[in-house]
Each structure stands twice: as C-alpha cells, then as structure tokens.
Design a protein around this nucleic acid. Structure first.
Lengths: 229, 229
DNA sequence: CGACCATTTGATATGGATCAAGCGATGTGG
DNA sequence: CCACATCGCTTGATCCATATCAAATGGTCG
C-alpha cells in the first residue's frame, strides 16, 4: 500500500485528496446500506490499491475504471487473479491478510469500505449478512470459472476470456479492453506472444476483428462458442 | 444423482439403506448445530453423490473416506475440482445448481444436510450465518490455491499437490493416497504419464519415496519446498 | 494360474515458450 | 515540425516441456 495511511479512516490518501463520502454510481449488491459506509478514492494508472500480505481492513468497489488483482511468485512470474469492472467488488480476502495485490489498470475511482463496519453491521442485520455471503459465493464461482479456463488450450482460453469480457462489459459484440496483452497473458497463464498470435488467428478465421489492439469485435459468436469447448 | 430420491428426506437411498440421524465423527465447523440436522449415508467406491446440473438441495460433510468433485467437458476431458477428506464439507455451490459432480473415491460415509434447513437457521442465528460464510470463504481460498497450482510447471504442480495432501491429512511425512493417478492428473491439468514420470523423478532425486503406488513418503521437505517455487 | 486394471517406462510428436527482430503509435527534445 | 527514442504489440525462427502413442510391468482377484 502507499506510505501515508489511515487519515480520516481512508487508506493511502490524505483527507484533502480523498473525495467526501457519497453514494456509489454502480449497482449495489448491498442495496445501498454498505456503499454509504464507504469513501470514494481515485487511483492513477498502475497505482497500487493494496499489496499482497497487507492486513485486509477494507472492502472495495469499482466505481469507474478497471482494477487487476495479482500475485507475484518468487521467480517473478505474475498471476493475475481477476479483472474488476465498474460495479464489481473486490478485496474479499478470506484471512486477515490480502492474498493478492490490487492495482488500477487505468485511472480508476474506487469506493473504499471499512471491513469492521460491514462485519459489525452483519452481526445485527441478517440482510447484510446474507449479501456478504452471496458476494463471497459469487467470487467463488468466478474463481472456479477462471480455474476451468486454465486447463484448456491457448485458443480456448483466449476465446473464453473474450466471451467473459463481452458478457461482463455487456457491450454487445464490441469490447474495449482496458488491460495490456501482458495482463491478459498473466490472467490466462500464457505468454503475450501466444495471446497475440491467437488473436490474429481468430481474426484470420473471421471469428473476431481487431481494429485497434485494445478494441475487439466479436464477428461470429457461434464459431467462438464452438471454439470455447 | 441416483434414480430413487428423497425418501424420508434423504437423497438417493431408501429409508432402509440410510443410517439414522446421528452426530458426526469429524470436527464440526458449525459447532454441532448443523451436523445434527444431517443424516449419514454410505457411498461405495465410484458411486455418484450428486451430478453436475442437478438442483443443489443439500450440503455434505465427509465422515470417512474421500470424495472428488469434477466437471466433464464436452469433449470428454475431465477437470477434478477438489478432493475432500474426512471432516471437510462440500457441495457449497453458489447457484441453485451443482456446478460439479461428486463421487466417492473409496467407500465413504457422508453426512447429508438439507440446505433449506441451514439457510433458515442462518436467518435466525447469527453464528450459523457467520460459519456458513466462513465455510464459503475457506472454499474460495482453496480454489484460489488450486488456481495458483495450474499456472506452474508439472513438477511444481505435483510437489504442490503432495505438500497439500500431507498438510490436509496431517499425517506427517507419510501420505496414503486414496485417489488414482488419473484423478491426480485431472486435478493438476496433466496426464497420468506426466504425473507418474514426475513422481519417479522426485524419487530419483531422493525428495520422496514411493514404496507402493498409493503411498508416498516425503523424504526431503526442504528440497520439495524449493521445487514448489 | 490367468485376466484385468493401474501404473510405469519408452519413443515420438506438438503446442506453446523462448529468443529475436520488426512495426506502428505516442511522446519528447532540438 | 520533424528526427528519434520508447513502448506495446505483432511476427518469425527455434526449442523444449508435456502430450500422445505404444508397450512392458506389477498388483489384485476370480
């Protein structure tokens, strides 16, 4: 995490820099109750939100921009655990420590919510408790789907990634990728070269179109679904 | 699941076959409250406990034996999601449907607990709700560790698997594997041949010993930890 | 003993990694 | 405004870890 911490209950920022408490923009999985407990913070491109091994004191919700969580292995290999889009929560670690680091992929606004506040609220409010559980269960499902990707071929992984992004961004067939090829590669357990080659291959078979490197158009969903195994 | 269902609230068995309700043998993550709501059932080697896509009406807890959960892809590839040892719960699916199938690896006794009963109890009892959440969070952590395994080399995966099993069976350095090489391969995203070769290789370098194919002795933990990256 | 199944071992093939170069977009200093 | 460095991405050549195909071994049960 950043050097300056916990001024006014908001991590990593001085009070002057942090926006005041306000309702979130995105859909709220807690019906608003929990969002109201948080403060909005802005992070610049590639800025760290929290680090692996730090105490997990907050829950986070993406307001705008995109966040990646990742782990770095001893030998430098990096595993991207997830990409979080606006409206999604992250930092749902199980122990008291963050198992992953989190960084803003592009300039991002994040709602930061004190864990202890949520937990003590959950003690009293069944509804909050249930939603906290559902949040964890949804995250579990997401990780299980990610795991399923990793046992497949390179082509299947890339196709699975594209379909996942298209669905989550619910942007129809036009995907605007906020992350680099390296991010995608580390998410899929591949190299950038393989990701790049696979994309050109998909473009060659007219399943997708790549007008710019960060923009992808799904041209043939049926073909992609078939390649998805 | 099996053809005959839901006789006396116990799935997949006639009343005559099912043992009466009784407390569980293993450690109970619910302090006993939930175990008492369940009935014990015996499953034979390779018998299905539930199938992918079936409605998830029950939670399960291994009393004795071992259970594997798995998914089968369209082309026949199989992904083993987890091995569950005595004392561990499984069937914590997120939606209303089971995302995986579950089978007894060897003859196994399983405590079967009605989901609806647990959930309605959780509505009233904060403690049960918290433990349900912790259970899900622990499962999340387990899946994340599994995911970490899958981005590594074959040797690292096998070593990681052995260390995981040694820890979970808390049997010191002597591991008795209930599952076949095929099960291990499908868990690690490798082939049986690669698993087998890797084990002989580890034995050759004196990191482990394989007195019988299902028994493994960890000979040099430091070396194994080093190979684990 | 003999059949069967799981496991190991061997030979070869291949998908993706690695090493290396080229290319286009963006930004910077002269 | 242009030369040029930089960065992210693509493309090409080669290598290697693991898959695949095939056969031998060993343990279990009738």
């Amino acid at each position: 995490m950043l050097a300056q911490m916990d001024i006014g209950g908001i991590p990593g920022r001085t009070r002057a820099e942090a926006a005041p408490i306000r309702p979130a923009d995105g859909v709220c999985p807690f019906g608003g109750a929990i969002d109201l407990m948080g403060a909005s913070m802005a992070f610049a491109r590639n800025e760290e939100i929290y680090g692996e091994g730090e105490p997990a004191e907050y829950l986070y919700k993406v307001v705008s921009g995109t966040v990646r969580t990742y782990k770095t292995l001893a030998d430098g290999r990096r595993q991207v655990g997830a990409f979080h889009l606006p409206g999604e929560m992250f930092g749902i670690e199980t122990g008291g420590q963050h198992a992953f680091s989190a960084e803003a992929i592009d300039d991002a606004k994040v709602l930061v919510i004190k864990r202890s506040a949520v937990f003590s609220l959950a003690e009293r409010d069944n509804d909050v408790a249930r939603q906290l559980w559902e949040l964890t269960a949804r995250e579990l499902q997401r990780v299980q789907e990610h795991l399923s990707l990793l046992i497949k071929t390179a082509q299947e992984r890339v196709v699975g990634f594209l379909l996942e992004m298209a669905e989550r961004a619910h942007a129809g067939n036009q995907i605007e990728l906020p992350m680099s090829r390296q991010d995608i590669a580390d998410y899929l357990g591949l190299t950038i070269e393989t990701v790049s080659r696979t994309l050109t291959q998909l473009a060659t078979m007219a399943a997708i179109e790549v007008p710019t490197s960060r923009r992808i158009v799904l041209r043939n969903r049926a073909a992609l679904a078939r390649l998805n195994a």
